[in-house]
Every structure is written in structure tokens, then in C-alpha cells.
Simulated scan of single mutants.
Amino acid sequence: MMMRVTQQMLHNNTLNQLNRNLSRLNEAQEQVSTGRSINRPSDNPAGTNLALKLRSELAANEQYQQNADSALSWMEMTDGAMNQASNVLHRANELATQAANGTLSDQDREAISKEVDELREQLIDVSNTKFRGKYIFNGEKTDQIPFPTKGVSNAEISELDNTSLQTQVSGAAAIEYSLSAKEVFIGNNGGENVFNVLETLSANLKNNDQSAISDSLKKVEASVDQVLNAWTSLGARQERMEAASSRLKDANTNLQSLQSKTEDADIAEAVMKLKQEEAVYQASLSATARIIQPSLMDFLR
């Protein structure tokens, strides 16, 4: 038995097809206006899942990149401070070597002792270096000045934090980026207290004690080596941090490229599709206008 096709059924089918064409046109317009092939999960469920994973990985990578860049800035400030400390101690070494010469007069050694005192003051200032409002040589106690007085007392030393700061550069890797005052200036594990070394050298110069000055010279030389060793350690960490930063930048570029391929629309293709959908929709409107025309029978029903 043949099914009777009514005018109402014809109208409904025509409108449904028209709405489907309009929906495709809207989708094409949205892709062109946003530049994205995925604007909602229903556009591409598998692509959406991949895009969300890429976004999450990219966000984590960008945070690791910020961590590395921040640590590198801290290291650059520390490197500058270590350079100053090294210069101070090298100058002290020159003065001690000069003072160990038996031909100098009492007045000469007195003048040298005054410069040594100034060098000690300068070294204390270096040890209290701040970066972005934080003291760089006091471990996790970045809000506390390592040596608040020029005396460098045992009480001050006991309050120093020997913790080495570290930052996360991946899900499984963290890199240390700081040096402590104990490591550099006080001498861990039987090292030299460089402030005491300079203070003793100055006193020996004032006393014009030739033998004691020679002993102080050895202490100054050991202090120079101590600072250089810490500086070298910082350089090795800095090199590792720079390598991590470079790797993270490359990873960010690759992730952004993958994200673009997953989410972004091919604009040329999207515009062509938009033109096609516009043509289809206009044709649908024209056809619908001819099909859905009121007749006398429509009014009589």
C-alpha cells in the first residue's frame, strides 16, 4: 500500500533539511571567525581529548620554564656576587703577599691593614646581597639578613640556613640553584671563616708580626680556593639549568605546534567550505520558497 504524502509532511521535511543546512553554515562560519576547528567537544570528541591533554602538558611545561628562568636570574645575581667575593679575596691575597715581604715598614703594614679592614667590610656586604627583596646566601631564610652586624658573631653563624634552594624543571627532576653563606664564607666541614681570616690578617699587620702574617697568607689562599670551589659548583648547576631551560623551550614549541594542528582550522579550507555551505543554504532557501507556497487547498484544510 502506498503511503500518502501530505503537504504538511512535505513542509516538515523541507524545513528539517533547511535547518540542517543552516546548522552546517553556522558551523562553517564559526570555524572561520574563531580560526579553530574544534569549538566544542561535540565537534570532534577524539580531537577534544587530545587537545585537553596537550593543553595540560603545555601548561605544566610553561610553569617549568618559568621556574628555570627565575632560577637562572637568581644564579646570575649569585654569580655576580661570587665574582665580587673572589675579587675581594684576590686583592687580600695580593696584600698579604706584599705584607709578608720583610722589607716593608710598620707604616706600610698599617696602611695595608686598613685596606684589609675595608675588604672585610666589602665582603660582608657581598654576603648580604639581595635579589628581588630576598637574601641569596641564607638558604630558605630569604627574609633574614645573614650577617646583620659587622662582627659576624657565632650567634649569627648559628642562625644561618645551610639549605640549598632547588626548583622543579620537570615532573621528575629538580635542580639546586643557590649557595649558602656557610658554604661560601664560613666554610663547611672544616673550611675557612673568611671574615675571621681577614680580621686576623689585619690584626697581624697592625702588630707587625712577620711570622703570623705568613700564616695568614696561607689562610687567605685557602679562602680564595674555598670561594672558587663554591663558584665552580654554581657554574656547573647554572649550565645544567640553562640546558633544562633550552629543552623546555623546544618542548613548548613542539607542544604549541601539535596544539595548533589539533585545534586550529585550515583557514583557506574553512573559507572554501563556508562559501559552499552558503551556496547550499541559499539554494535550499530558494527551493523551500517554491515548495512551501500557500494554496487555496491549504486554506480549506
Rank of each mutant, 00 (worst) to 15 (best):
F137G: 12
G139L: 13
G139I: 14
E140P: 14
K141E: 00
K141M: 12
K141A: 07
Q144V: 15
I145K: 15
F147D: 00
K150M: 14
V152C: 08
S153I: 10
A155L: 03
E156D: 06
I157S: 08
I157L: 13
S158Q: 15
S158N: 03
S158H: 10
L160F: 11
D161F: 07
D161I: 07
Q166P: 07
Q168L: 11
V169Y: 04
S170L: 08
G171D: 10
A172T: 15
A173L: 13
I175E: 00
I175H: 00
Y177D: 02
Y177P: 00
S180E: 07
S180C: 09
V184A: 12
F185W: 07
N188M: 14
N189V: 05
G190T: 04
G190A: 06
E192W: 04
E192Y: 05
E192P: 03
N193M: 02
V194G: 02
V194S: 05
V194K: 01
F195Q: 01
N196M: 09
V197M: 04
V197L: 04
T200G: 02
L201T: 01
S202A: 15
N204K: 09
N204P: 07
L205I: 04
N207M: 10
N207E: 06
D209N: 15
S211E: 14
D215L: 09
D215N: 11
S216I: 01
S216F: 06
A222Q: 07
A222C: 10
D225A: 12
V227L: 10
V227E: 01
V227G: 06
A230V: 13
S233P: 10
S233A: 12
G235E: 06
G235M: 05
R237W: 04
R237C: 08
E239R: 14
E239S: 10
M241A: 07
A243Q: 08
A243W: 05
A244P: 02
A244F: 05
S245W: 08
S246N: 13
L248H: 03
K249V: 08
K249D: 02
K249Q: 09
K249L: 07
